[in-house]
Every structure is written in C-alpha cells, then in structure tokens.
C-alpha cells in the first residue's frame, strides 16, 4: 500500500489523477495533496511518501523547481513522476536533468498510468 503526494494547482486534476491511479488497479493507503511546489515541500515535512507526482506549470513554485528542491533536500530515494501537458523534449530533458524518474503526459489513459507508475508502486 503506497502513500502518494500529488502536487497540482488544479483540484480537479488531483481528483482525476487519484481516480486514474485507483482505476489502474494500484493499492494506495493515502493520497497527500498540494496545490504548488511550496505546499508540496511543506507536505513532505510531515509525511513519508513512496511516490511524488507533480505538475510542471504551477504558481509560487513550479514543478521543475519543486523537483530540484526535493532532490536537494531529500536526495534521490523518493521517485518523482512529472504529470503535465508539457511534453516537449526541452521540458522532458530538463525534468530528467533535475532528477525526475518518469513522465506522464496529459491526456492519459489508465493503461499509461499503469505503465509509468507501475515500476514505483506496482
């Protein structure tokens, strides 16, 4: 049973991601939600998570800066998967450089959720 942090400024998208994960058949103990990178870092202070899912475009602290902050503070142990419409090579490469473990492009199917997240919470 996994604990998953979802960082996205859209509450609707956080709900879609949670339903998508359940629909993909993953067993989740707890979802922790955050509306931007700043809230995401705060959430990590009080929660031990097995996987972080993050949007890229967010106010206050975007997903790439959040990713860099997570890697600086917590190292490479917690997998981070970026979930975003930003699928251009530049953004994907930047995310990989900053330590992202995977990339899920919106729109996504439950099968794609299963394929991308399976190695981390399967």
């Amino acid at each position: 049973m996994a604990n998953i942090l979802i960082v996205d400024d859209s509450g609707t998208m956080r709900k879609i991601i949670m339903r998508g994960i359940r629909q993909a058949g993953f067993k989740v103990e707890n979802f922790v939600e955050a509306g931007d990178g700043v809230q995401g870092l705060s959430a990590l202070e009080g929660n031990s998570v097995d996987l972080i899912l993050s949007d890229v475009n967010m106010p206050n602290m975007n997903g790439l800066d959040f990713l860099a902050a997570v890697r600086e503070k917590y190292g490479p142990s917690t997998p981070v998967v970026m979930i975003t419409t930003e699928g251009s090579n530049d953004v994907v490469n930047e995310a990989r450089t900053r330590g992202a473990n995977g990339y899920l492009k919106k729109p996504f199917t439950p099968e794609q959720v299963q394929t991308v997240l399976g190695p981390f919470i399967g």
Binding site: T12, M13, I16, T85, G87, S88
Partner: peptide, 21 residues
C-alpha cells in the same frame, strides 16, 4: 460547482499544452 470551472480550465490547459508541444 468549483469543479466545473476547474475542469473547464484543465481542459483548456490540455489543449494549450498540446498545442504548445
């Protein structure tokens, strides 16, 4: 109600993000 506006925005976001790509 708040989900309706948010969902329409997210749909626009997906269209925009894919156009950007």
């Amino acid at each position: 109600e708040e989900d309706v506006a948010d969902a329409l925005g997210e749909f626009a976001n997906m269209v925009g993000g894919n156009l950007k790509n």
